[in-house]
Amino acid sequence: MLDDIIKRMFRTFMPQGTEVKTPRSREQYWEDQLIERTIGFDTTDCTEFMSKLRQRAIEFGTSVDQNNTNAAVDNDTDKINQALAVLSDESVEHIPVEKDKRTIDDLIDKYLNETYKSLDSFFEPVYQAIQDECKYVVTSNDWNNSKGKKKSKGAAKSYAHYDGICVDYISCLLVLFDTTLFGSGSDGLAITSDFIAFKSLGDDKEFIYISELESVSYNRSSKELAFNNKRYNYVHTELNGPAKLVFESLQDYLNQPSLKLRKHLNS
């Protein structure tokens, strides 16, 4: 009713043909802030994720607006009390209530932190399946046994380490493939919480930070895993199953909406 009255008043005093726009609601304002911040992000596979973020943005914005309304009322009330105190020759201390300065970026960052799943959480459900009856595979479950220590030490010395840093064992190990003839671990693939490293017989080592991982692929017929188009070939047929599980775990990690949106915002 009020909107209709306002529109009629504008039509009375404004030139004919002038478009009358209804002021944006605060809910629409915060939703527009989110749309503007995430413009260009492909929501095809994460509509539910973005729908929840949209709802959170409206709730968040409403809370910020209410806090600032309350702060303004409290500050105005204090000013009135101060004026009355002057008239009464009294002294009243005024402590201003600060505004809520949170922005849509604060809400997005909090939401992404809440919904993000670490890489190791994608590997935990498949650890047993990855290593079952396969002597060429080591997981974090083998950290303290002789098999795990031997292969981890061999891989760390050969290829699974940061440049210029020598280590005895691989820390934060998720899974390791050993493709050497005698099980030394010096050739193979190592995936940790921080990086992926691999080395095939006669080749130089490859090293990729997890934060820089963009794509992963798997080809069973050619016994190949590829990370950012850097190819790792394994020779043992027994690794087909574990390789597929590794591929699926990494792909699920990369496809989680929170990580995809984080990368989009940082690009």
Rank of each mutant, 00 (worst) to 15 (best):
residue 1 M to N: 03
residue 2 L to T: 04
residue 4 D to I: 12
residue 5 I to F: 14
residue 5 I to N: 03
residue 6 I to E: 08
residue 8 R to T: 10
residue 8 R to D: 13
residue 10 F to I: 06
residue 13 F to S: 07
residue 17 G to Y: 10
residue 19 E to Y: 13
residue 20 V to A: 08
residue 21 K to M: 12
residue 23 P to C: 04
residue 27 E to N: 10
residue 32 D to V: 03
residue 33 Q to P: 04
residue 34 L to D: 01
residue 36 E to P: 00
residue 37 R to V: 09
residue 40 G to I: 10
residue 41 F to I: 02
residue 41 F to R: 00
residue 41 F to W: 15
residue 42 D to F: 05
residue 45 D to N: 15
residue 46 C to K: 01
residue 46 C to L: 03
residue 49 F to G: 01
residue 54 R to I: 02
residue 54 R to S: 12
residue 54 R to Q: 13
residue 55 Q to G: 13
residue 56 R to D: 03
residue 56 R to C: 01
residue 57 A to N: 07
residue 58 I to M: 05
residue 59 E to S: 15
residue 62 T to S: 13
residue 65 D to L: 07
residue 65 D to M: 08
residue 68 N to L: 07
residue 69 T to C: 05
residue 71 A to G: 06
residue 75 N to R: 11
residue 78 D to G: 07
residue 79 K to M: 14
residue 87 L to R: 02
residue 87 L to P: 00
residue 90 E to W: 04
residue 91 S to Q: 10
residue 91 S to M: 07
residue 92 V to Y: 13
residue 96 P to H: 04
residue 103 T to Y: 11
residue 108 I to W: 01
residue 109 D to F: 12
residue 110 K to E: 15
residue 110 K to N: 12
residue 111 Y to T: 03
residue 116 Y to V: 01
residue 117 K to L: 13
residue 118 S to P: 07
residue 121 S to M: 06
residue 123 F to W: 14
residue 124 E to I: 13
residue 124 E to A: 15
residue 126 V to A: 10
residue 130 I to W: 11
residue 132 D to Q: 10
residue 132 D to F: 15
residue 133 E to A: 13
residue 133 E to V: 07
residue 135 K to W: 15
residue 135 K to Y: 15
residue 136 Y to T: 12
residue 137 V to E: 11
residue 138 V to D: 10
residue 138 V to N: 14
residue 139 T to A: 09
residue 141 N to W: 12
residue 142 D to S: 09
residue 143 W to C: 09
residue 144 N to V: 06
residue 145 N to F: 12
residue 147 K to P: 05
residue 147 K to Y: 07
residue 150 K to T: 15
residue 151 K to L: 15
residue 152 S to M: 14
residue 154 G to I: 05
residue 155 A to T: 02
residue 155 A to R: 01
residue 158 S to T: 05
residue 160 A to M: 04
residue 161 H to T: 02
residue 162 Y to V: 10
residue 162 Y to E: 14
residue 162 Y to M: 06
residue 163 D to L: 11
residue 165 I to Q: 04
residue 169 Y to G: 00
residue 170 I to L: 06
residue 170 I to H: 04
residue 171 S to I: 03
residue 172 C to G: 03
residue 172 C to T: 05
residue 174 L to R: 04
residue 175 V to T: 11
residue 175 V to N: 08
residue 178 D to A: 09
residue 184 S to V: 07
residue 188 G to H: 10
residue 190 A to E: 02
residue 191 I to W: 13
residue 195 F to K: 02
residue 197 A to F: 08
residue 199 K to C: 08
residue 201 L to W: 15
residue 203 D to C: 14
residue 208 I to F: 10
residue 210 I to F: 09
residue 210 I to M: 12
residue 214 E to S: 13
residue 214 E to G: 04
residue 219 N to T: 09
residue 220 R to K: 15
residue 223 K to G: 01
residue 225 L to G: 05
residue 226 A to P: 01
residue 227 F to K: 02
residue 227 F to S: 02
residue 228 N to T: 07
residue 229 N to F: 12
residue 230 K to A: 14
residue 233 N to R: 12
residue 234 Y to V: 02
residue 234 Y to M: 02
residue 236 H to E: 08
residue 237 T to V: 13
residue 238 E to W: 04
residue 241 G to Y: 07
residue 244 K to F: 13
residue 246 V to G: 05
residue 246 V to F: 10
residue 247 F to Q: 02
residue 248 E to R: 11
residue 251 Q to E: 14
residue 256 Q to K: 06
residue 256 Q to C: 05
residue 256 Q to P: 01
residue 258 S to Y: 02
residue 260 K to F: 01
residue 264 H to C: 00
residue 264 H to G: 00
residue 265 L to T: 04
residue 266 N to I: 07
residue 267 S to P: 02
